[in-house]
Design a protein around this nucleic acid. Structure first.
Lengths: 346, 346
DNA sequence: TTGAAAGCGCTAACAT
DNA sequence: ATGTTAGCGCTTTCAA
């Protein structure tokens, strides 16, 4: 059976030129803004193009010119967390603002797939790549990326050869802790995971600093290797066993662990925020906004990092300059809901 | 300052041919698998290519051939829910299996942006596009898509001109309801949203059917327009006011509303599943797996729909055949956790 | 202000 | 089994 009308936009620059009675150069100029067209030629050409449904073929421009105007975005996990989504939003806004197309590929946390995806991106002649690894960690940049401007999001290159942007974990933890201190709490525990990592270690550090500065005694409780509700419950249980007197506030590694703390307190008949105040990290809304009471938490700068990454990648492409490598830290933002109250007896 | 080694893979098919001492046709054949190359020529050419870091330029192939080997994926919201993520995973697996690159764009639920993104996709010469609208609904296909094979995910084209794949809402609701019936429950309420929609209406229907078939009396309680915890709490509260005797089980429109039901029962001192059994829909893991007890729920066929969409889109491209338009319904899958118990007194 | 023509890297006839 | 060659649709000198 014959196929329906040709799938691809069969109308090319030559068709527009013929129909408009001008040369293809003129049409090209009308779209690229180069050269100097008479106002009315411009209008005429654009009109004809629109009538014909002409869309410039990017593959052809990419072939002819040096640039494809596409930037690749490699994510290791867009499926199970919504974090990457916000980074993508920021990246896409930046790309759109610069007339670039953002092409997303997902490596599903598999190095082999990642290398293959990067190779595919390279074959598409992407101008630059942003590599977003969901959990803040060290990660070696795939060899496949050599020769392509790249910026890392939420991870740092141990060889320090790439530009990267990460959340300021220490600031985030300080902000959370100081929020609790400002509410009058003095016995503040930090519930976290036991597996060392950039995010965990940075937050532990920030917590310690804030406590020590306020002349308070840090209390760190670990609940398992994964930052989930189960670990939050486990940590809370462990804390009860270990403390003569229960803290009046808990700063949790993330919102999911905070959810576990909610569950543990509930089982004990403790009320939030009356008996105990809680602060999380992430502002993972399906959790933070839905808990009862709403969870006061520190939102991570996902959108901002995505935006910054694309802007920076494009700057590297445009300036040709080797941007000073190094890591940029972006602050978290306090989101106030209902889980922080005054300290008991304060 | 001079830029570092040229950003794009400067080595082309001609370089490989020269270095290997063969013609460019031979190199092309070595990569495309067309023609008939001697085994050792093949190996030799591939070796040289690898050494030179050669990657075929897709833009050039797309320009020359009829096909770009890229399929576009338009999502209206990858940022705030993880559902699209699973669809994307399925779509990407299918694309990779067929040697296609999946290019994702996000419309952020804005028709203007969507049209622009589709136009960009078209300019990239995509072979086909899949349009994923997160919440199962009717949606008119953008004009920008005319002439391009497209398949819809999670939405149907009212004009019925496009192929689409959606969850089988009725089956999903029946499965949920029957799970409760099988556990011995007879007084089973359905907590849902008040805004009519394909998903809501289909689930209400399935619930009704299952109840009536079992000779049971349906009880539908609405909690608001958005399927979130707040609405779940509101619905539960309303139910208490309206019923002489509380149901022993609740089937919720989605996991988030189920979370609201958990909160409402907790406030009342009711235990799950001892006093009341709960079933959700979505298997939204940050909620379903983290609730205490874990939520028994119906997983939506996101991955499968993504896969099917790309497979089907590619089939349309390849066969040139006008695939019979129409909607394909995919079943949900029961995920058993801990929120369903035997009926009280059963 | 506009046009002619070369060529980006590749594939597909068509040789040999 | 391998090589020659003509374009795909566009941008970009260069000329008019």
């Amino acid at each position: 059976m014959a196929s329906a009308s040709d799938p691809r936009s069969r109308v090319g620059i030559a068709d527009v030129a013929r129909e408009a009675g001008v040369s293809i150069t003129t049409v090209s100029h009308a779209f690229s803004g180069r050269g100097h067209l008479a106002e009315k030629t411009m209008v005429h050409v654009k009109g004809v193009a629109a009538r014909l449904g002409y869309v410039p073929n990017r593959a052809a421009s990419a072939l002819r010119g040096r640039r494809s105007n596409i930037v690749g975005f490699v994510s290791d996990d867009i499926a199970t967390t919504p974090y990457a989504g916000r980074v993508i939003l920021g990246a896409q806004d930046a790309a759109t603002a610069h007339g670039q197309l953002l092409v997303l590929v997902n490596s599903n946390n598999d190095d082999t797939i990642e290398a293959a995806q990067i190779s595919a991106l390279r074959a598409q002649q992407v101008d630059a790549v942003v590599l977003a690894h969901v959990s803040h960690r060290e990660s070696t940049v795939s060899e496949a990326l050599s020769g392509i401007p790249a910026v890392l999001v939420d991870s740092v290159d141990p060889s320090d050869a790439r530009v990267s942007v990460v959340p300021d974990e220490t600031q985030i933890a300080r902000l959370a802790t100081q929020t609790l201190i400002a509410a009058g709490h003095r016995a503040i525990a930090h519930v976290t995971v036991d597996a060392s990592g950039v995010a965990r270690d940075g937050r532990v550090l920030g917590y310690r600093e804030a406590m020590l500065e306020a002349g308070l005694q840090p209390l760190i409780v670990e609940g398992g290797s994964e930052g989930r509700a189960l670990a939050g419950r486990a940590a809370f249980a462990r804390m009860i066993g270990a403390c003569a007197e229960l803290p009046t506030a808990v700063f949790c590694f993330n919102d999911q662990m905070a959810m576990g703390v909610y569950q543990a307190t509930q089982a004990l008949g403790l009320g939030i925020p009356n008996d105990i105040s809680v602060v999380g990290v992430d502002d993972f809304e399906p959790v933070s906004a839905e808990l009862l009471p709403g969870l006061t938490t520190i939102a991570l700068p996902h959108y901002e990092m995505g935006r910054w990454a694309v802007e920076t990648a494009l700057a590297i492409v445009n300036d040709g300059a080797d941007r000073p490598s190094g890591v940029t830290r972006m602050p978290g933002r306090l989101v106030v809901r209902g889980s922080v109250g005054p300290a008991r007896g304060a």
